[in-house]
Nucleic acid binder design. Structure first.
Lengths: 207, 207
DNA sequence: CCAGAACTGGACTGTCCAGTACTGTTGCCT
DNA sequence: AGGCAACAGTACTGGACAGTCCAGTTCTGG
């Protein structure tokens, strides 16, 4: 038998269930996903699913919270910008570009939809995702801006507010479009436009 | 028999069903709402519900689209601003305040959640709501800004983009919070802060 | 190599719910 | 008044699905 994945059989099944559940939940939402769907996609018996996760709610909560790990990748995308006065705008546009590209990935948007859609039924989940995902990225962005302000490149008194304004200028349009339409697929030129226009407004306000 | 409501019995029942359905859908979401719930709240037999609306999906679509009527009230809230150079900031803050207050009403936010949550299953509904609700308000806002630009009070080349930036600066924070948390209830001082800070940034970018 | 734990597969229970059927009642229109 | 269409109430059908049970199989660790 080839095992490939590390760990014992149980650990492999566990992982397979998580991956399958993530895929199905993200595609069909919570209510329209059945435990049989998940078991089938994971190539696992339903009993095994229930051996690993108490019930559907627990499984859902677990797979959603597991995705907050990926936040680290986003954080990398918005931290560390060269403090060079001459090419500040250029650097900020590059930052904005990374920011936009990362946060408008279909998977990220779909996950956002999933959490928002079920924030009624899982209030603690929505709150946790907001804090551990959203606000962590925002805090990193605020740090970056604070650093730039220390170098005299930006004029900022409330760095968190500035980070929110930056996000709002960049993301308001594409995120809204994505939330209301099934699958977004923003073209690269569109993102370019949002990035440059947003950065221009931001710099006008905060330089 | 007192009738009170205008129209015949049938029209009254129709209205009662719509109102009940709107209330229940907004409180519990689409999947968790049963037709019996709606019939009960409307004080109507289930058969009558099906006399007026073919099925659950049709009913849902109808009550959501019916809410786009209320957009007119929002449009009034963002149109018509005095073109007075001296008190431009003050007037814009007032506009921002109306804008924020209207769009962060719990009902508006809840409806937004409802549409976003079901945009998978009802794609045309999400798109229609976005266009007939969201974009109409945005277009009005853009008109207002274009008018101010004609008066020389703002420096704008793309009025729609400016309207989006204005919205993003003001709404990004409170709307996100509301989307991820069950019921938001923003305090008035918070809204004040968002309004003044957002307008300050906007004016820095577009004056 | 050999227990025991984990897994499979499928049947099964209980519940919820959309939508229908049916019988009788109430309101509306002429 | 009278006739019809809409209504109430309730029972029913059919399907979906969460969660359980069990009998037999496979893996794994000592």
């Amino acid at each position: 038998m080839e095992a490939n994945e590390p760990g014992g059989r149980s650990a492999r099944k566990h992982q397979a269930i998580i991956e399958a559940a993530t895929a199905v939940f993200m595609e069909k939402g919570y209510a329209r996903t059945s435990m049989d769907d998940i078991a089938k996609l994971a190539a696992v018996s339903k009993q095994t699913v229930y051996k690993h996760f108490a019930d559907k709610e627990t499984l859902f909560a677990e797979i959603v919270m597991a995705t907050t790990d990926r936040v680290d990748a986003m954080i990398d995308a918005v931290s560390g910008i060269p403090a060079d006065a001459a090419s500040l705008e250029e650097n900020l546009v590059r930052l904005a570009h990374r920011f936009l590209t990362t946060l408008t990935h279909p998977q990220v948007l779909q996950l956002r939809r999933l959490v928002v859609a079920n924030a009624d039924s899982f209030p603690e989940l929505g709150a946790a995702w907001y804090e551990q995902g959203f606000e962590r990225v925002l805090a990193t962005l605020a740090d970056t801006f604070r650093h730039l302000a220390d170098q005299g490149l930006l004029r900022i008194d409330d760095a968190t507010l500035a980070a929110n304004h930056f996000s709002g200028l960049l993301l308001w349009i594409p995120v809204n479009k994505a939330m209301f339409h099934g699958s977004p697929q923003h073209t690269q030129p569109e993102l370019d436009h949002y990035a440059t226009a947003g950065v221009r407004a931001f710099l006008a306000a905060y330089r």
